[in-house]
Structures are given as structure tokens and as C-alpha cells.
Design a binder for these strands. Structure first.
Lengths: 338, 338
DNA sequence: GTTAGCACTCACACCACAAGAGTGCTAATA
DNA sequence: TATTAGCACTCTTGTGGTGTGAGTGCTAAC
């Protein structure tokens, strides 16, 4: 168990290291944070804390930097003490005019988070079980080629090109759409049966094509799909943590793979603020980086908004920034549009 | 005017420099390319060519590297010698062949180009004058909130959230959609008048809201919009041209701004293969980079597919890669490519 | 016009050296 | 017993000198 003073040493090292980016020496601490103690005393404490796993030295005879465990202690303390701070930025203004629907809103959110955190904002939205559709549209693009548009309940729009075995006129397709849309808001399993009956009856001349169309529709609705958004990234080059080409390349190629981001996201199991620090991440490319993100579920969709940055991240600011963005988006309360 | 031998020197320097990435000396040339001449002779030629602006020295007493003018000579020679492959591409076919519509097809194209060229594939599609719509849909998302979906003639899908002054039921919205869709395929100016009349008559109870809705629709249809896609980029870190952090940051932040890419694209005026080398680019961040891209117009849309890389780019490969990608996208009717 | 020869230049890698920051340890101190 | 001052030691970083190799420019000979 840590003494009060030891805790203070760890927190000070983390705080100072986050601020400066350089390893923290005993003298700095004794002058700025623990003014009542000499550097020698603190040196002894630091030595003990290194043995306990909270601090480490980048090389012999350098100052100390936090380990993942040290960051963890800091973050847990911060999260415990957290009070919603007053925003220094006019968020509402930034997000008010997201005219591009939920996807546009998430994209704006990542952009804002990138800007104010100086790290990389990310967001994702995925459908979870028993999603309902709000509107379906079949648009004839050419002979036997149809564009399928599906608006899901939360406002997500999916599009897919499908090929039919037999050509259908736009009128016939409209007929089909109308029939399907009659069930808008019901869950797919309820819908399926009655539509099939209808096809067998009134639309039987297009039976094959309709079956294909509905099969595709079912695929779009039932297949859980993820959409990922990332904010601007190029300012990461300026961080001292990424002066090394290979490090920043690792991060960038990681962020480029949608697949790897969805993996990362799936490790956010807590319903609320998730903080994954450095080595706590399963994924190799993230061992040097951290993820702070909140998840929230509404309308059959799970959304995630967060920030990826170096493990030497300004967790306190990032956490409150995410809080504020969520608040403005209204995602923490209801997934409805205002 | 250049002598035969001078031309050969320039082309050899460009070729060798593209291959090796290091400045090319007179001895290398005399041994590998112009075996009939001594290094001293070539030194003299190089000195002349430097004065003429085709070559330059990174520093005194180093070998020569091409100037923009040198690259230009090389590219023009290559382009002249190339057997012209399928020059025009039917973009509409692209759409049919890909599961995710034209946007998905373009995205795949950038991914493929990134992979096979080792630079960055880019693509863009933009509407040009008098675009026609194929289908319009108004979907009620909440009180006075409507999702507007527009499918343009080429298969581009636009979505936008609009706010109405008065609430409209989904039935009323369907009514409106149906009426608008009656004119699918006509140009907007023809449509506008008759729809307005209809609103004034039969839909007059929703007059205000309908006017707003149509105004927004008009905006979506008439405002020229650009969609930009970029392929994977992180392999660019491996190029010797971007070992400098500041250079690669410049490129990445450039590629991150959709705005700047559209600017770049608009400078591709030739209908066919455009090559913009280094300083030929208007844009500051591209002075060190080059763009190779083809444009083509069909269905009221202008599409572009190309590659961005360092000015020391393997133009020959890139040009044939783009040719090939276009060919595959245009000819393969089953549409699955990897 | 072409070539051999030679002096010169510059980038780069290597080394030694000094300065500075910070540690660990020991002995003195409250 | 806990704390502190003092000191030797370690390691990074920056700097200047030096040697090497690649390549040029120039001149004189072919």
C-alpha cells in the first residue's frame, strides 16, 4: 500500500511528465511539488516506487517517467475526483449545424476532439441486435441493377448495389418498397413473414427478383456493421512522443485499418468512460498509445466517441473534453435529434 | 535544343534517380547507361544540362538529380512512347459492378492504386452542371426533422438532415416524394415549376414546409459537390523522400484537407492522363510532390482517379497502373477485385 | 571533340571531450 | 528513525576535429 507521500510523488511525476514530456528528476519535484522535502528524500521514495512498478527510468541516471501502472493510478485518481468542469469552448456553436445526420455529427465530433485535445478524435457507431429500419428504398439504376437504400432507426443510412435475376421496373420496385415500408419500425423478424406472403400473392410475377431483393435487405439489416470516423491526425507529428518515424508510422498505419479500430473498440466494455493505457491494450501497435472513450447505447445502436493519443496523454483534459462533446451531442441522454 | 546524347543523359539520370533515390554521378552513367563515353565527357554534358535547367546538384560536388523540367522531359517521352490503352472509361459501368455503388468502387480503386504503386491512390467524383436526380426520398426522423435522400443520375447518394417549420407526417412526405420522383431524370429547372404549382394546389396545408424541403433539395442537386477518396498512406513513411518529418507532415496534412485536394483536382484540366510534377503544382504543399491522374466525364459527373507521390515518382509504373485499374474497373463485369 | 589526371569540395561517419542533469550511496543530523 | 547534505558516478547531448569516399571542375594531352 502506498503512503500519502508516495501517492503524491507518483501523481506529481505523472502530472509533470504529461506537461513537459521530459523525465522528471527529484530536484524538480522537491522544488515545485513537494516543497517540504529535500531531493534526497524524494530520491529514496522514487527508488522504492520504481521497485513497486509505478515509475521507471528511460536510462540509468535519468529522471523517472511513469509506467502504465503509474498512469493508471493517476487516471483512477482523476476520474474519482472528476467534477464536470465549465467548458472553455463554445461547443454548441461547433456542433449546432451538423446537417449531415448522425454520421455527420460523429464526424464533426471527431474533428472537434482532434482540435481541442491535440490528439486524434475517433468515433464509431454499430448496430446491435434486433435493429429496426425506418425506411427502405429500391432505386433502379439499370437493367437488373438496383440501388438499395436503408435508413435505420437511429438515422444510419446504408446503401448497396444489388443484382436481380430478372429486371424490375421502377414502378414494381416502388410497389415493393411501399409494402416493406408499411412495417417500418417493426423488428425484421416480425416483418419477414408477412412480406413473403404478399410477394407470393400479388407480386408473384417478380417472385425471384423480390426474393433476392429481400434477402439483400435482410443482410443489410441483420449484419452488424460498424462505421468508423477519425478526426485530423497530422498535428500528431508535433508531439515529442512521435518524433521517432517508426513510432508515428505504427500509429498511422494502425489508424488506417478500419478493422483494427473496430478491434480496439470492442475492448471498450464499460458502459461509460473507458481508459486503456499503453500496455493495457491488447493490440501491439497501441502499446505506446492510449485510448479514452465513452460508449453509449440507444436506439439499437452502440456509439463510441473518444480520443487516441500517446500514453503520455493529458487524460484530465481529454476526459472532460469527451464529456462535453457528448453532452452537446445529446448522445448520453437520447439518440434523438433536436 | 537538345542533342541526342544530351537527351539520353537526362533520361538516364531521371531513370537511375527514380530507381535509387540517390544523386547520380558521371561515373555511374558512363558505366551503366552511356558506355561509349567516358565520365569526363558526361561531366561536361551534365554541366551544360544543369545550365539549361534539366538537372541540378543537391550540393556542390555531389551527383546530379533531375529538376522539374528534367522530370517533365522524361514523362513526356514516356507518355509519347506508351501504347495508349483503353482511353475512355464508362463510369456508369463502374457503378453496376461494385457492391457498394460508385463510391465503393472509387474507394477500392484508391486502395488498389496505393498498394500497387506504393504511393497514395486518390479518387474524386464531382457533379457538374445540370445534374439530374434519379430518386428523392424524405424520411421523417423526428418532429420537424427530416432526412433528405437524393440519388443522382450517376449513382451518387447524398443525404442531409433538414429542419421544417411545421411537422409533416410520413404519409405527407411520401406524397411529396412521389410527386418529385415523377420527374426523375428531368433536369431540375424543368421540374421546379410544375412541382411548385402542385404544392400550391393539393399540398397547400404544408406549403411552408414543402417549400423548405424543396429549397433544400434544390441545394443538394444544384450545389456542385465533391467526394474525395484516398487510399492507404502509411507506407509512404518508408520512402527515402519522406525521411524528413516535416516533409511527410506537410504531405499528410495536405491529404487530410478535403478542400486542398479538390483544389488540386481542379487543376487537372486535360481529359485523359494529367501529370503535374513538383513545382508545376500551384499548391505550396505539393511543390515536392507529383500528381498523376486521369479524368473522365460521363453522366453529368466528372471523375478522377490517380496517384499522389513524391516528385521522384516511378511515373512509368504509375501511369500504367492507373491505366490498368481503369481497364479492370471498366471491363470486368463481375466486379470483384482485390 | 574526347579523355586522363588531379586538386578541390562536401556529406557523413567516427571519435574524443566537456557540460549538465540526475542518480545512488554514505555519513552526518534532528 | 527519518531526513538531509555531499560526493562520486553514469549517461545523454552537443561540439569540434579528422578521415574517407564520392563526385565535380579544370587543364592539358590525345
Amino acid at each position: 500500500m502506498l503512503t500519502e507521500r508516495q501517492l503524491e510523488v507518483v501523481l506529481s511525476v505523472v502530472y509533470e511528465y504529461i506537461k513537459s514530456g521530459e523525465s522528471v528528476g527529484s530536484r524538480t519535484l522537491s522544488r515545485r511539488y513537494l516543497t517540504g522535502h529535500s531531493s534526497a528524500t524524494i530520491r529514496n521514495e522514487m527508488s522504492d516506487l520504481e521497485e513497486m512498478g509505478y515509475l521507471k527510468q528511460p536510462h540509468t541516471s535519468a529522471g523517472r517517467i511513469p509506467t502504465t501502472q503509474g498512469y493508471r493510478l493517476y487516471v483512477d485518481t482523476v476520474l474519482q475526483r472528476r467534477e464536470s468542469l465549465t467548458p472553455s469552448v463554445d461547443w454548441t456553436k461547433l456542433l449546432r449545424d451538423h446537417r449531415e445526420g448522425i454520421e455527420g455529427a460523429l464526424e464533426s465530433a471527431t474533428e472537434i476532439l482532434s482540435k481541442i485535445s491535440n490528439y486524434v478524435g475517433i468515433a464509431a457507431i454499430t448496430t446491435i441486435d434486433d435493429i429496426k429500419f425506418q425506411k427502405v428504398d429500391f432505386v433502379r439504376m439499370g437493367e437488373r441493377v438496383v440501388l438499395l437504400l436503408v435508413v435505420l432507426n437511429g438515422g444510419l443510412v446504408h446503401q448497396k448495389i444489388i443484382n436481380l435475376p430478372w429486371d424490375m421496373s421502377q414502378d414494381a420496385l416502388d410497389d415493393l418498397s411501399r409494402r416493406v415500408n408499411f412495417f417500418a419500425g417493426s423488428s425484421w423478424n416480425e416483418v419477414k413473414q408477412s412480406i413473403m406472403e404478399y410477394i407470393m400473392g400479388e407480386l408473384s410475377s417478380y417472385k425471384n427478383s423480390c426474393e433476392v431483393a429481400l434477402k439483400e435487405l435482410e443482410g443489410v439489416i441483420l449484419t452488424p456493421s460498424v462505421k468508423v470516423f477519425t478526426g485530423s491526425k497530422s498535428h500528431m507529428f508535433n508531439l515529442p512522443d512521435f518524433q521517432d518515424l517508426s513510432k508515428i508510422q505504427a500509429l498511422f498505419s494502425f489508424l488506417e485499418e478500419e478493422r483494427s479500430i473496430t478491434d480496439l473498440i470492442s475492448s471498450c466494455s464499460i458502459d461509460g468512460m473507458n481508459v486503456l493505457i499503453g500496455e493495457e491494450n491488447e493490440i501491439l501497435e497501441m502499446k505506446n498509445s492510449s485510448l479514452v472513450a465513452t460508449t453509449s447505447i440507444s436506439n439499437g445502436q452502440k456509439a463510441l466517441i473518444g480520443v487516441i493519443g500517446p500514453d503520455r496523454m493529458d487524460y484530465e483534459n481529454v476526459i472532460s473534453a469527451i464529456d462535453k462533446v457528448l453532452q452537446v451531442l445529446g448522445l448520453d441522454s437520447e439518440g434523438e435529434f433536436k
